[in-house]
Design a protein around this nucleic acid. Sequence first.
DNA 1: CTGAAAGCGCTAACAA
DNA 2: TTGTTAGCGCTTTCAG
Lengths: 330, 330
Amino acid sequence: MAATIRDVARLAGVSTSTVSRALSVPDLVNPATRAKVRSAADSLDYAPNKAARGLITGRTGNLGLVLPDLANPFFPSVVKGVQARARAADLAVFVADTDEDVAAETGLVRALAQQVDGLVLCSPRAGADELAKIAADTTVVLLNRLVDDLPAVVFDHADGMRQAVAHLVALGHRRIAWVSGPAASWSSEQRGQGLAQAAADQGVELVEVGHFPPHYDGGMAAADQVVATGATAVITYNDLVAIGLLARLHGRGIAVPDELSVVGIDDIAMAAMARPALTTIRLPKERAGRLAVELLLTLLDHATAADEPPVRRVLRGDLMVRASTGVPPR
Amino acid sequence: MAATIRDVARLAGVSTSTVSRALSVPDLVNPATRAKVRSAADSLDYAPNKAARGLITGRTGNLGLVLPDLANPFFPSVVKGVQARARAADLAVFVADTDEDVAAETGLVRALAQQVDGLVLCSPRAGADELAKIAADTTVVLLNRLVDDLPAVVFDHADGMRQAVAHLVALGHRRIAWVSGPAASWSSEQRGQGLAQAAADQGVELVEVGHFPPHYDGGMAAADQVVATGATAVITYNDLVAIGLLARLHGRGIAVPDELSVVGIDDIAMAAMARPALTTIRLPKERAGRLAVELLLTLLDHATAADEPPVRRVLRGDLMVRASTGVPPR
DNA sequence: CTGAAAGCGCTAACAA
DNA sequence: TTGTTAGCGCTTTCAG
């Protein structure tokens, strides 16, 4: 069906190698023949077969993105960032949603690894050793996770927590609750530690309420425990949790922010749509996706060279204070 | 790095052809040798190179999914359905978000077409002729769009509208507003027509308010026009629009559902989280994704045969009436 | 039931 | 600057 390099060669009256060169290393061929080849290729609507090319160059021109749950609005943003950068480099992106399942994650990674040049693992759930093993065979960039010295793009969670605490302290809060995410979550751990540090530095009391699933239901479940802590403000693992919390608080007739201030993390679109609008720490999600691909491309270029490429990017988030939130505690 | 079929052949003491057969057409080889090959393959952690296989079989083992906007929660659900079914058939999925851009859509489709066995075009924005052209070169299944006789999975929008109207009529509404989606949107068109029919059948007055972007901002923008119609109930193009509408109504101090009943379409997770919870028509999104792949697989199998495969699936949605909604008009 | 040989579409030495 | 040759990793005739 599709034209092959031979069809183009025949039509242009040259050899297949010349066609190949004319199209991928134009400077190596005579401008005249180059033009002939080009027009022949155009008229046949020829596009080189990526699989065949990959077989010989070792580059597939594809890239894999593995993430835990597309239903969490955090991740589509990352996908967009990754795709934007990948497209600019003429790479196609395999996306794999693991449904928060570690086993599925490693399986998918193995399946993808063989047909991509590199992999972006977004908030991977797998263990450190597992990830190290994967990284041994494949070029990998972690996104929102740090493991050994693996290349990674991460957010400065500690700084985000610092901002959140500063905001709450300025409003007069002195006792803050922290709703942590999944026990095995690297970012929950980071956020928790950053928060503990910030609380200590800024002289406020911190109560952890622990380990909830990273979505709406988790927040629903956490709400009552949060209330029981007697804290006047709460910071949640992410916005989805915050929104679930808001719902349960509303159900119990607890006014937000008058009786309890709520701060989320991520700044998903829904945060602005919630009523009252959710105060949150905005993470540069798309940018993180773009940078992850950027990093991957660098690594691929330096693959053979022995020099150390830059291997880690840390991105800062920003406090988003929204209308109708941020009332001092009673 | 990775083991090739030759490594396996050497280790098992057989030819590469035997390895190939033992792994892909096991019945053709002696059980004893089959076992030898299997264990050799296992110990080398061998997996056949998909690109090389594709070169000869003409099957890539990949599948493309093109959609307008991952940020709309409707689409991640479809992605999940597609991935689930694809995974079961051992296919990897390229996902391409076009950002609602028709030009980007056709470009991405062309780029993907060459390296997939088939394409699922979800709510495609491209023109009918464009799509027909694409379908001429590639096996394509449309999702939520009908064009000529192209294979498709669609929702029964007319029936959904019938249910929505029946619900509102039962509550006593006699004048309903319709907030339509993008002018070029097939599903908006379908929903509008279905609604018009339902309104006529059930004897209620319908006022269209027109053509808004299919997201939150569209709903915000539509709200004032809706109010101006004097309708006691409104049906919106989708849930995102409904939620935007809700926000603006809240801003204007208009009580929902007491002063205005709002019905969305899709049943995205956010619909249940909204306050008041949104009444909506639930569309079987994941199922649609699964069926689209199913259909694609059927088409691929029948590719050469001349017999007509089943080529269209129509899925019914269901009314989701949520707590605190559904009050008769004043 | 198994092996040898050919070749999918392409690129990369190596010559000319 | 261009063509010839070889071969990426695999499957598939075609013999045996």
